[in-house]
Design a protein around this nucleic acid. Structure first.
Lengths: 193, 193
DNA sequence: CCTACCGATCGGTAGG
DNA sequence: CCTACCGATCGGTAGG
């Protein structure tokens, strides 16, 4: 028999994601999640081994979403500059909570166990940062961009988007198109030959 | 009689700063600070009302240091582009711990009481973000930079430096001069007319 | 009475 | 999945 209900695991992930974003890893008690869901705290531990694994599941799901987005852009789009433009638009057009999840990851991984940190760090590099590096490297090889240190160029781009990953910065409102365009213009103008 | 000893208050601030950077606001127990200093935990509460006030004192001191640095640059330097160049060099040439303090502030203020958050937020704007805004606005008015949204241009600059505020990113090593130069080049090329 | 603390313990809460 | 709990540790404060 198919279960048409949302499934508690998914509900936990959804609520916990919102709460982790607003309160941080240590700032959120497991109790708050169960209370909002109207279940016991022990119920959370039935679906997730511990707090760390719940947190990682949230980050992992988000990482795979982003990876899919980037892969699609790279597959569909022509020039490296156009790929960068699409990438920035894609990320900054996400709802505030999705944007905040990227910040959550880079901000709170220090609080995880060395093993989890290493595993997630590798995924973060493979599915996200590395993809951007590849786009930039291709653009440099093609003579589209200047010959910069690829890592420096990568982090310059990610850094420019970072302020919009803070809920306090934009509130719950979407990033205006004009802002997205100006950010992209500054960056591309800055790295183009 | 002058007291030539360092003074416990200053020692607390120094140690706590390093620990807050590595463990975050909730991740650091007051006990850990007192243990490293070889004093009792109660001694901390003699010098600082509570954990929040200790944390704020650290951020406040750092903010005033940065403000002084920016003020000096603005006073000494000619063109807006040159001021930006000096500002980036000044911030990224700081030791890793100093760089990490800026990240600490923007990352952990959410965990403070609304009153503290508001007060510090105003100072952060007045002594740091607002100063950069002024430089960029002056550069735009003088026709040195393109006509961009000043806030967008400000956060693009701060964002580009942000990755170097993470200890994990550069380790304890200083930011290489070549990297500082490339970051500045990308940004200035991007906003110049 | 003051300063600069200490040893011990308070009420609550964390993850499990 | 729940009720009923645990070991430990948290920030903060008592008297002296």
């Amino acid at each position: 028999m198919n279960n048409s209900e949302p499934g508690l695991s998914e509900q936990i992930l959804r609520i916990a994601k919102r709460l982790f974003i607003n309160k941080g890893y240590y700032g959120l008690a497991m109790r708050e999640i169960s209370d909002e869901l109207g279940v016991s705290k022990a119920a959370l531990y039935y679906h997730f081994k511990d707090k760390e694994q719940l947190f990682l599941a949230i980050l992992q799901a988000h990482l795979e979403e982003i990876e899919a987005g980037i892969n699609q852009i790279v597959a569909e789009t022509g020039s490296s500059a156009e790929q960068i433009r699409k990438f920035v638009a894609y990320v900054l057009s996400q709802p505030a909570e999705q944007r905040a999840t990227i910040r959550l990851a880079s901000q709170e991984i220090v609080h995880l166990s060395p093993t989890s940190r290493k595993t997630f760090g590798k995924n973060y590099q493979d599915k996200f940062v590395g993809k951007i590096q590849s786009i930039l490297r291709a653009g440099m090889d093609a003579g589209e961009f200047r010959g910069l240190q690829v890592e420096v160029a990568t982090w310059a781009l990610l850094g420019m988007m970072y302020p919009y990953f803070y809920p306090t910065h934009t509130g719950e409102k979407p990033v205006p198109n004009k802002t997205i365009q100006e950010i992209t213009d500054i960056y591309l103008k800055g790295i183009k030959k």
